[in-house]
Nucleic acid binder design. Structure first.
Lengths: 187, 187
DNA sequence: GAATAAATATACAGATCGGTCTGTCTTGTC
DNA sequence: GACAAGACAGACCGATCTGTATATTTATTC
């Protein structure tokens, strides 16, 4: 079954938003790239912001799905999975299409905390943090919440250092630090 | 001596760029806010991008100046200064005007690595990292480069978690993790 | 006080923005 | 074959964008 026009639109928008940013990507470029008519877009979405929100939702789904599979396929032991987070991160960062975290970027362009787009970005981080907390709990960390938050800091920091400063080995540095923190959390 | 029109322009632009972002801040808004004429702007800057670059340079100067003073006024012992980084960070994040890191935001809006604005953002992180490395070296860490990079990850991660997810205590979590990493680096 | 330089106001150009409207063409169903 | 739904093309709207041109006012300096 062919993807619906709506899905195709969201996929195309997602790609362009990640590559060029939100403000820099005009409606017309999305339409030209996807071959969809303008009226079709506005039949499915009330505004560009709604399209952005749909793209963020899809990205959140895809990313977390990929991430959880990547972590869990790399290690069975819960404690090893906490480190596998950074192996997955390294794979992502090293990929050809890496262009930073879409949600960090969205928060940058829609800075006010009450903007629905910013709220969606915050929710994404909340969900990823919840997953890391699950891993930490399963591993039996003394303070799973604290450990999860610390590992999140390393992960987000690695994304930033890789994207902004071009540090290709950021995830490897993060993994080394994570091992120290994990060891300490179980000592 | 009154600040020059040029300086006033850069200061106003800086404020608006931090608050609303780069693409979302039009030339006209900067002019209206600063009370400067358009021709004056284009006498001093060839383009908006040049104004952005000037704003980034000023921000880099101001921020690193503030940051180094904030760290060094909080602790004398080099090893304590490594932790004071996160106390300074906490003060910044808790401030009323905190709106994320301007350089992370710039890299988000100007995503291509060869864009001069992106390059300027990368340079800022490089300089901050160099300072942290100095602190780590002065403290006599076994591997100052590695420790500095790890602490940078925590710092950038804290900025992201605070701005995107609204985690007001991100710097405190980062400080806790930093203590573990620092202790480990001297063990 | 005249000359000079700088900043001003204002209008405008040309492009692009998000979004609307009209009308045509295709497609599937009865 | 008639009909309805949905996607298409493309003109169009007002607003806004960066950047330019012109002409006036202000301030400094000799």
């Amino acid at each position: 079954m062919a993807p619906s026009r709506r899905d195709h639109l969201v996929d195309t928008a997602l790609e362009l938003f990640i590559r060029d940013g939100f403000h820099a990507t005009g409606i017309d470029k999305i339409l030209a790239e996807s071959g969809v008519a303008k009226m079709t877009l506005y039949k499915h979405f009330k505004s560009k912001d709604e399209l952005i929100l749909s793209a963020l939702r899809r990205r959140d789904e895809h990313f977390r799905n990929w991430f959880m599979r990547a972590v869990e396929s790399r290690a069975q032991a819960p404690r090893q999975r906490l480190l596998a987070i950074f192996d997955a991160l390294d794979e992502w960062i090293g990929g050809r299409d890496f262009n930073g975290c879409m949600f960090i970027n969205a928060s940058a362009e829609f800075a006010r905390a009450d903007n629905p787009i910013h709220v969606a970005a915050a929710e994404h981080l909340r969900l990823v943090l919840a997953y890391v907390r699950e891993l930490a709990t399963a591993a039996g960390a003394r303070d799973a919440e604290a450990l999860a938050r610390e590992l999140m800091l390393l992960a987000e920091g690695a994304i930033v250092m890789a994207h902004v400063a071009g540090q290709a080995d950021a995830a490897k540095n993060a993994r080394r630090a994570a091992r120290t923190l994990v060891d300490h959390a179980f000592a």
